[in-house]
Design a protein around this nucleic acid. Structure first.
Lengths: 186, 186, 186, 186
DNA sequence: TATGAATGAGTATTCATTCAT
DNA sequence: TATGAATGAATACTCATTCAT
């Protein structure tokens, strides 16, 4: 494994376990099996490391989120597929998910990044636009819609992570999706 | 103003402005106009101060949340009233709201507290139980329901705080409430 | 001894012994017998400590320099007295002298302070003005005159510190003073 | 340009601009356009680099200092020529001059080197010996004489560097030289 | 109850130097 | 000879907390 990746992996693990402020950079380098200087050779500051990690996690989510969505026949099916992709991402990479949530409320995140909400949802944004045009989605401020769907989905990931058994059940998953779907469908 | 209150007020302001870890206790005492020792005379540790502040904010929310709810004729009207109470709390005490969100994701919060979701919603929990019994609410895990409603409402407060104009419009408020209501009503 | 004074004394000793960069603040606090935090309680940064020390030393020199000068009958006698005062200062407080020289060439000193040359010689400046008016001193740029006299005197202090025996001899002292005096007298 | 020379040039520039301790070797190699390892390939340590640079600068001064001196008819003219050579060196290679001064007061310089005063003045030393023998120079400790002349000359270079206009004027140059000459001539 | 000087463990970051390629 | 990633000791400074007054 590349040095940068070793550092990123160690950082992700420790940040999720202990939080940003409770994780000294010295511990990260130790966990990564590199010298303290090496971390700073690759990332100029701790803050930069955190932001790099954010991008790293974000990329994975974005890559998975839209997978197979446009193969689905109906708008609802497309939506369901997207939702499943996101939930699956959370279940498969729980540390990515946790890191994400932590990052969103930390003071490490720049005002700009935070304001854009979950920027990576630009694909999702476009998707809802189509639904709105087809009058399948309630008429409403797209920003509100997006942030609602995001926070609902994230909350559901948290729920499933705390109750892995529930995630196994197609019924509960359907319940969860319906909660989301009913909130904004026309 | 009492010394303890001066400290709490200063702490709330600074925590919201800068975050927990970026706010030294020395700055809090300075802002409160007391000596560094005085803070620790009233609160044994920084963590304890944060938790006291949490209780302080929570009390205000709990006090307001159920106001007039049971004066409403229907379940929907009761729900709307409760929702309005919470949103109004967020608009009137934005720092309380922000502190709350910060606290929820911080490592200062104990595992237990965090797991209960937003604990202060025990009143709300009881309320939904009634709705479920009357079959006005979808049959589902109460924990999921509660955390969904909580996170949706909190997300809406954030939205209204960022767009105060929208909060003025009864239409947009109705839109927002309907999003919530439609998600779980039977 | 006051805490601040203990720190100043320790710093002076170590800076002279080892230089600024070779003297960690931790060593200074250790030598002063205080905790590392205490140093930073009184001086915000290492740089500020160094500058405070500079002012401290400077004050002593300024206080001694003009002592008894205006009791002397002639301009030459006045000059001699001033020169003796400065040399005596260097001999009595060699660490002050060494610190001074170090400071003058360090990058800790601000451009402004450095440009003014040895600012504390404002009294001396006035004194030379009088001599120039009486045509006892060569006509020349006062800035050049001042910096020449300063550097000559400082060089002589260094010489006497390296050869304490020479300082004992009134003859050598006279030789040294004459070197100075002859350079600028009319 | 040779690698070694590129490094020396970069080092000189940076040391003068920022000081020894404020100039990381990494910055030197960057400025020189070589890899960090390359610097240490040519100079074992930073200290050695500094000392090499010192020798480099010193050579240039020594080469220029005595130029044409012995072509002059009188002792005074010889002295004047030597003085002019040194001042011209300072004006033409201001970075060499500044580096020199910095080096003299740094802790990088060995006790021995420092004690000898400005070692490169051995030629000058011999020259004054002749003047003393001819009774053209005051009888005094040669060490004192040498260090006085050195420091006076260096101070004058500084003066001229800060006021380049003054250096243009033959009058001011004469004034300056006379200051020096009158101090030690018999 | 209030003060604020003193404490000292803790932490991000720097930087001269090494070494495998 | 040149590279630049890796090293890890060193260091300025922070900050929650204590305690004598």
């Amino acid at each position: 494994m590349e040095t940068k990746e070793k550092i990123l992996t160690a950082a992700l693990k420790l940040f999720v376990e202990k939080g940003f402020n409770e994780t000294p950079t010295s511990l990260i380098s130790k966990e990564a099996g590199v010298a303290t200087g090496t971390l700073f050779h690759h990332y100029q500051t701790k803050e930069q490391l955190i932001n790099s990690l954010y991008l790293h996690c974000k990329e994975r989510l974005v890559r998975l989120m839209m997978e197979g969505v446009y193969d689905q026949p109906s708008f609802r099916a497309k939506m369901k597929r997207m939702w499943e992709n996101i939930i699956r991402w959370g279940m498969r990479y729980p540390m990515d998910y946790q890191f994400f949530m932590q990052f969103s409320y930390s003071s490490y995140i720049s005002e700009k990044t935070h304001d854009q909400g979950f920027m990576m949802f630009s694909d999702m944004n476009r998707f809802f636009q189509e639904g709105t045009n087809l009058e399948l989605v309630k008429k409403m401020d797209p920003e509100l819609l997006l942030s609602m769907v995001s926070s609902m989905t994230m909350t559901q990931i948290q729920y499933f992570l705390q109750h892995p058994g529930k995630y196994e059940s197609a019924d509960v998953r359907d319940q969860a999706f319906n909660l989301l779907w009913d909130s904004f469908r026309n």
